[in-house]
Design a protein around this nucleic acid. Structure first.
Length: 234
DNA sequence: GCGACAG
DNA sequence: ATCTTGTCGC
């Protein structure tokens, strides 16, 4: 497992962070379809926190997109680089997530983030940010609608409805399990919304959440426990 | 001004 | 995100 420090020049205030978003948002690529679902690698990234001890653990789990079997895993430990502020989540997660991605022994392929991409107050959420910094194709799959509105998709798995900021479609509420609350998919970088939804469905043969986020979620939690118990006085 | 608000 | 037991259901 790898250890990272907060990058030099990392924003210290909300104002600086928003300025970075406004700068980087111009780099997002939205006109590439992205990798075809069911082929190559798909990587989930997630983080867990211990605010008390100022520790953050990130995990990256690479799956074979066809079989959903784990191909590779990596973790990283860092300090909390930003407080949680809605709309500025990326500044809290990205340094450690990028370290985990760097530690992988193989190319990540498509990266699936826990959160949003385009569906963001300034249209530059975590998935967009990570995509621009790494150049990788990224999508965001969130568990909550944030500030956006949507009509409940029809009951069958695969049904979807627009996720709306006013009248602008910034993502999609996608039903991954019949009669179960939808997930909220948005585009990050170099992937189309239709393709992002197709990937999400390919990653949810059984559960509401993508296998990528389920796997990375459990891995970063155990990584956090191990890191945190190593610091515990005995 | 107040409330809501990804993880 | 995190704090947290049992419990209802497939």
């Amino acid at each position: 497992m790898r250890t990272v420090s907060i990058p030099a020049g990392w924003p210290a205030t909300e104002e600086q962070a928003r300025a970075v978003q406004d700068e980087l948002r111009t780099e997002v690529v939205l006109d590439e379809p992205g990798p075809p679902p069911g082929t190559g690698h798909v990587t989930g990234v997630d983080v867990a926190y211990d605010d008390e001890r100022d520790v953050v653990a990130a995990a990256a789990v690479v799956l074979d997109a066809a079989t959903l079997e784990v191909v590779a895993e990596a973790t990283a430990i860092g300090r909390i680089s930003f407080p949680y502020v809605p709309g500025l989540l990326a500044f809290r997660e990205i340094p450690t997530v990028m370290a985990a991605l760097d530690a992988l022994p193989c190319p990540p392929g498509l990266v699936v983030c826990d959160g949003y991409g385009l569906a963001h107050p300034r249209r530059f959420g975590l998935a967009s940010h990570l995509g621009v910094l790494t150049g990788l194709p990224t999508i965001g799959v969130a568990k909550n609608p944030f500030t956006f509105t949507y009509d409940d998709p029809h009951t069958p798995r695969g049904s979807a409805s627009p996720l709306l900021a006013g009248t602008e479609e910034v993502g999609r509420a996608l039903r991954t399990r019949e009669s179960v609350k939808p997930v909220f998919v948005s585009v990050g970088h170099r992937v189309t919304l239709d393709n992002a939804c197709a990937h999400t469905l390919a990653l949810t043969p059984q559960y509401r959440l993508p296998e990528t986020t389920r796997r990375s979620d459990s891995l970063c939690r155990t990584a956090l426990k191990e890191a945190t118990e190593a610091l515990r006085p005995r």
